[in-house]
């Protein structure tokens, strides 16, 4: 089996901020209520921590994000998804939940640089200045749904695979040198 293909070919753009399509990453949508028995253990079995509302907990090459009161986004290496799904099935056996592989349904971008925040300020109706490190924000990036969070070096943004080209165009336009927000 050949390697999986990132939706937009791992494109890059260098403007006043650097935009890179990363991935493909392994991603699992987990639907479960917070009070489901064994949920914390299920996360722990994957080396993950159950995130608080609107947070994402990053641990090395894995992360767990809070998407809604009964939805989590688990991020892990692409090749680790099937094992993780099996692990979840075991941990949550008999408990009402839904775990689905969505690794290929997403495109993931990194926006980096001192002014990376300005790229997001141009596309999302979100107060980026008050976005805390580790806060996962689901919102709109211009005309499409997106989720993003801030870590030490910049921002990671996730959107649907089919609009990866649109997103790359949008981020590049927003990061074009000369268009800094001053």
């Amino acid at each position: 089996m050949a390697n999986p293909v990132a939706p937009w070919g791992n494109a890059q753009f260098d403007g006043f901020a650097k935009v890179t399509e990363i991935g493909p990453l392994g991603m699992i949508t987990l639907r479960a209520k917070r009070d489901v028995a064994g949920l914390e253990a299920a996360f722990a079995a994957l080396g993950l921590t159950l995130p608080d509302p609107r947070r994402i907990v990053i641990a090395g090459d894995k992360a767990a994000g809070w998407m809604s009161p009964d939805e989590y986004l688990l991020i892990l290496p692409y090749g680790a998804v099937n094992d993780a799904l099996a692990s979840l099935a075991t941990s949550l056996a008999g408990q009402h939940h839904l775990a689905a592989n969505v690794s290929d349904a997403r495109a993931v971008f990194r926006i980096e640089g001192d002014k990376a925040d300005q790229v997001l300020k141009k596309i999302a109706p979100v107060d980026i200045d008050t976005l805390a490190v580790g806060e996962l924000r689901r919102s709109r990036a211009a005309q499409v749904a997106a989720a993003f969070w801030k870590d030490g070096q910049g921002y990671t943004l996730v959107c649907f695979r089919s609009v990866a080209g649109y997103m790359m165009g949008l981020l590049s336009h927003s990061a074009t040198s000369g268009s800094e927000l001053v």
Partner: peptide
């Protein structure tokens, strides 16, 4: 009321 976000109408 679920996520506590003061949402812009364009998110709704």
């Amino acid at each position: 009321p679920y996520c506590g976000v003061m949402a812009d109408e364009t998110e709704l």
